[in-house]
Each structure stands twice: as structure tokens, then as C-alpha cells.
Design a protein around this nucleic acid. Structure first.
Length: 397
DNA sequence: TCTGGGGTCCTAGGACCC
DNA sequence: TCTGGGGTCCTAGGACCC
């Protein structure tokens, strides 16, 4: 979805269309304050001048999404608000409305599912879709179906998206970035040398900031530079698994299937404090936050019907270093008090000499509540997968 | 006045078991 | 005065993604 969080806000506040708007940051519901001030007036008639500006922002947040107009100023996702305020002081800033964003997320995914049911979730604003068995999915290399999906999403949500179509997920993801916003891009295997190899290494989904730095030090800047390397050399420099993967990725090879269903591995809650807290001096405040986080995780587990066996904590110190501790308990739980108690033991094992910036609570090793595994009963062996023919699924590859 | 929150996956060492 | 070869689970850290 194009600038998803921002686009969702613009639906409510169309008067902001075309303006530099950034979404993200603190807990202050700035827009609620505006709504109170203009009570009775439709949201769409609230004057633009009433919206809060980045230069007045106070807090430790980062930008989740910036409108394309805001991006002209050089601000974008993951940038700290304070830094963004220097680049675009007059941009309008709004907090994320998660309920609203989730609502539109469900809506656009349901819309796709009606047309192409084989979908893999990729977070709130992104999916992989398998075109293989969709009627007409191969026409014009997928462009016809992509257009249909784009139109259906727009009709249902008034939001735009960008679609990339390719022989596999890796290339499709890259293709989806070629024509933003509201674009479609088709990448064939034969296009790899011309369309993929000139791109910077960072464009590969899986090469992040660290790998990029290391590649640059080795004088590799484009995906083509990686493709030109001997696979063994990549393995020697990046390890057996990552090096081999990098070589495959540079050649546009990827055989991961579109996975339609998956079970969660962990659930967590974390919070960054308004100011750094000291374990001793701010003990009471910290304790309250800690208990709240445990309650929230417990309620998330219950609401979604999961129990977990490994309880953990995460700290971020004022120097931004992270420490984690976890402990596996005897039985699965979704109980806030047991989570609190176990997480408390974890907290005792971690250095608390520096001020803390963030505290988090995590429950891992999840099982469905009420399942044999969760009840501690022996788990029946998995039935053997029926041997399914690949009928037609290979013609993409 | 730098730098959110919720995830997944991988690695690597040690304990422990057969 | 030497001492395997699997395997699983637990824990901590780190890279990466949306």
C-alpha cells in the first residue's frame, strides 16, 4: 500500500491532500485535541491551520510514514521526529491511529482474497499474492490481474497500492518498488541483468544496513557486483548460509513458496519512556510500567487464544545498547501474574547500572490455548503430508 | 532534545541425553 | 594422560523487516 498510514489519515482529512504530512511519534493524541476544539464540525472541514506542525513536536518518536510531499524534504520512515523537524518544520504531524489502520488493512487484504485467494501476509500494509492459478493471472505477464486488484482495492478503500509481478517473491518485492505510487511493474527472468543488477545492494530484501556497509568495504555496490562474485568468495566473507543466499538473490533466484498460514512465534509489548529511568531512583514508576506491560501481553495472548512457555524481558539502556533475558517455565501460561513473576526473575539477572530507555516483556514458545501441547499432553505425530502433484505451480519458475 | 513497536529468523555455546 | 557422535533444548545477541 502506498504511504499506508498517511493515506489512511488523508481519507479522514482530505483537506491535507498534497501537503507534507508525517505520521508517527508519541502517545499524545494530537488530533483528538483538534477534534475537541472543532467539535460539531465535520473532520474534513477542520482548517489546515489547526493541525500540529513538526516544529512544535515534543517527544522521542520516529516517523512511521511520510506523504510523498513530505518525502520531498528528505524525511521518511524510521527517521527521528526531532531530525525530521529540522528538515521539514512546517510539515503536519499526526499520531498513528492503529485501529483505523488495522481496519483498512483487513479491508484491502479481504479485497485481494476475493480475487486471488493464495496470499501471504507481510505485515500491515503488504502481501505476497500467488498469481499462478488465478484465472487470467498470466495475461500480459500478470499486468491484467494486477490492474484488476489495484482497481478493486481502490473501489473498496479509496487507497492506492503498487504491485510488482515476477517469477518469485524476491523479484516481485523489488518490482513493486519500481513504480510507486499507484504503479504496476513486471519483471521477467530475462530482465534481471538490465533491471536488477544496476540496483544498489540494499534493494535486496534481506540486505540491511550492516550487510550494506560490509559489502561497500569489499567494493561491492550494485546487485550486479554481487552476482559477478564467485559464490565461494561470498561464502568465505559472509558465511555459509548468508553468502550462498546472497549469491542466489543477486541472480534473482528464490524458491520460497507463498505461505498462506502461519502460527505466531512470540508476542511482546515494549515501551520507550518519555525520559530515561533509573532502576533505583525511578523504581516505583518502572514497576508500574513493568506490570502494565505484563498485563498487556497476557491480554494479547488471551484475546488471540495463545499460551506461552518462555517469558523474557528486553531493556534498552540510555546508550542504546540492548539486553535480553528469558526463562522457560514448566507449563504454558497466559497469566499476567505468572508472567510478571517470571519476568521479574529475568530482571534480576540483568545489569541495572545504567539508565533505561526502554522496557519490554515477551512471551515466546507459543501454543494454541487448549491444544494438547499447551495442556502438556503428548502431541500426536504429524500426519504425513499427502503427496500433492504440483499441477501447474511450476510454470512460473 | 537523535534513534518506535511488533515481529521473524539465525548463530553459537553449553547443558543434557542416548 | 584420552575422551565419539549424534540430537534437542535453552539462552543471549544480532540482523533484518514492516
Amino acid at each position: 500500500m502506498d504511504a499506508f498510514f498517511a493515506s489512511v489519515e488523508l481519507l479522514r482529512y482530505p483537506q491535507l491532500k498534497g501537503l507534507a504530512v508525517v505520521i508517527g511519534g508519541g502517545r499524545r493524541r494530537v488530533d483528538e485535541m483538534i477534534r475537541e476544539r472543532f467539535e460539531g464540525l465535520p473532520l474534513s472541514e477542520i482548517p489546515v491551520s489547526a493541525f500540529p506542525l513538526l516544529k512544535d513536536y515534543v517527544g522521542r518518536g520516529v516517523i512511521t510514514t511520510a506523504t510523498y510531499a513530505a518525502r520531498q524534504f528528505g524525511v521518511g520512515s524510521a527517521m527521528g521526529m526531532m531530525k525530521a523537524a529540522k528538515l521539514a518544520p512546517d510539515a503536519i504531524v499526526m499520531p498513528v491511529d492503529f485501529d483505523e489502520v488495522r481496519r483498512y488493512s483487513r479491508l484491502f487484504k479481504a479485497t485481494i482474497a476475493e480475487i486471488a485467494p493464495v496470499i501471504q501476509d507481510r505485515g500491515i500494509d503488504e502481501v505476497y499474492i500467488d498469481f499462478t492459478d488465478v484465472p487470467g493471472g498470466q495475461r500480459e505477464g500478470g499486468r491484467v490481474l494486477a490492474r484488476l486488484i489495484q482497481k478493486a482495492i481502490f473501489d473498496a478503500t479509496k487507497l492506492t497500492c503498487s504491485i510488482g509481478v515476477a517469477p518469485n517473491k524476491l523479484l516481485a518485492k523489488m518490482a513493486s518498488e519500481f513504480n510507486k505510487p499507484n504503479g504496476i511493474s513486471i519483471v521477467y527472468e530475462a530482465d534481471i541483468a538490465t533491471k536488477i543488477w544496476p540496483l544498489p545492494v540494499r534493494k535486496i530484501n534481506g540486505i540491511g544496513p550492516k550487510a550494506e556497509v560490509k559489502l561497500h568495504k569489499l567494493h561491492l555496490h550494485t546487485i550486479g557486483d554481487i552476482a559477478a562474485q564467485d559464490p565461494q568468495w561470498l561464502v568465505d566473507n559472509f558465511g555459509k548460509s548468508y553468502g550462498a543466499w546472497m549469491h542466489e538473490a543477486a541472480w534473482g533466484r528464490d524458491d520460497r513458496p507463498v505461505v498462506t498460514e502461519s502460527e505466531p512465534v512470540s508476542m511482546s509489548r515494549e515501551t520507550t519512556f518519555d525520559r530515561d529511568l533509573h532502576a533505583v531512583r525511578d523504581r516505583a514508576e518502572l514497576g508500574e510500567i513493568f506490570t502494565d506491560l505484563c498485563k498487556q501481553v497476557a491480554s494479547d495472548l488471551k484475546r488471540k487464544g495463545y499460551v506461552g512457555k518462555t517469558i523474557g524481558i528486553k531493556l534498552r539502556y540510555d546508550d542504546f545498547k540492548i539486553a535480553t533475558r528469558d526463562q522457560t517455565i514448566a507449563h504454558f501460561t497466559d497469566d499476567a501474574q505468572l508472567i510478571r513473576k517470571t519476568a521479574g526473575l529475568c530482571l534480576k539477572r540483568v545489569p541495572l547500572d545504567r539508565r533505561l530507555r526502554l522496557l519490554g516483556v515477551r512471551v515466546g514458545k507459543l501454543a494454541k490455548a487448549g491444544s494438547p501441547e499447551a495442556e502438556g499432553r503428548p502431541v500426536p505425530p504429524m500426519a504425513a503430508e499427502p503427496e500433492a502433484p504440483y499441477a501447474g505451480t511450476l510454470d512460473l519458475f
